[in-house]
Computed example of a mutant assay.
Amino acid sequence: MKVSLLIRRLSIPEFTTNAPVLVDVYITAMGYSPTIRDTRIAVWRRNSQNPGFTSVCALLDDQVVGVAYGFYGSPDHWWQHQLRRGLRHKGGPTTAELEIVQNYFEVAEVHVMPGFQGHGIGRKMMFELLREQQRAHAILSTPEVDQESNNAFGLYRSLGFYDLLRSFRFDGDLRDFAVLTVELPLKETKTH
């Protein structure tokens, strides 16, 4: 039997209906406690109402093995307030940074199930997610890891993402994050 990978855009109704399955991918991929499931489902459904909302999933023989979604950045969003705080703290924002935070697509979530990571699924989802976006940049955050030695950093760097903030702590989270950005549209680059 041949295994068939499909990267599929989801309509907002499809996303909200399937949010429990999609959140399960997130919880498994991140190693989070299942106790956050109901809260995350509600948050993801709320996020689907943001302007510019776009979502994709990766299906492997009809099994969901990946999910990614995002929406237009907005001065009204908590996340942009956090970005601006971080940029001020490091002495900015510079003119270039200000232009980025005024015109970006926020990649809110990108997750691939363990066992399927490192096989190009995240890359394919990112290209589909960011295809035809009407913003000049995409921005995302990812937990810091020593020497960027994980699949997530490898993916983002291969797509051309560069540092906007490093070792940044979002309010209410004790972990350090890298905030990365890239100009849109994505350019096809060779993988390592």
Rank of each mutant, 00 (worst) to 15 (best):
Q102D: 00
G52D: 10
S74V: 00
D61I: 09
P93D: 06
D61P: 03
Q102F: 01
Y69L: 06
G66Q: 15
G70K: 00
D76R: 07
H89L: 07
A58R: 05
S74D: 01
G86F: 00
A96C: 10
D61L: 13
Y72T: 14
A68L: 00
D61Q: 13
C57Q: 07
L59V: 08
Q82I: 11
S55C: 12
V101E: 13
G52P: 12
G91A: 12
V67H: 09
I100E: 15
I100F: 14
A68M: 06
R84T: 06
Y69S: 11
A68C: 01
T54K: 08
V64G: 02
V67D: 07
V67M: 01
T95H: 13
I100Y: 13
G91N: 07
E99C: 10
D61C: 12
V56N: 04
D62I: 05
V65E: 11
G91Y: 04
G92P: 04
L59E: 00
T95Y: 14
A58L: 08
L98G: 10
L98I: 03
A96G: 09
R85C: 01
G73A: 12
Q63L: 14
W78R: 12
R88A: 03
A58E: 05
V67L: 08
F53W: 12
V56C: 08
W78D: 03
V101L: 15
E97R: 14
Y69F: 12
V101F: 07
G52I: 00
T94V: 01
W79M: 07
Q80N: 13
G52N: 02
G86N: 04
T95G: 14
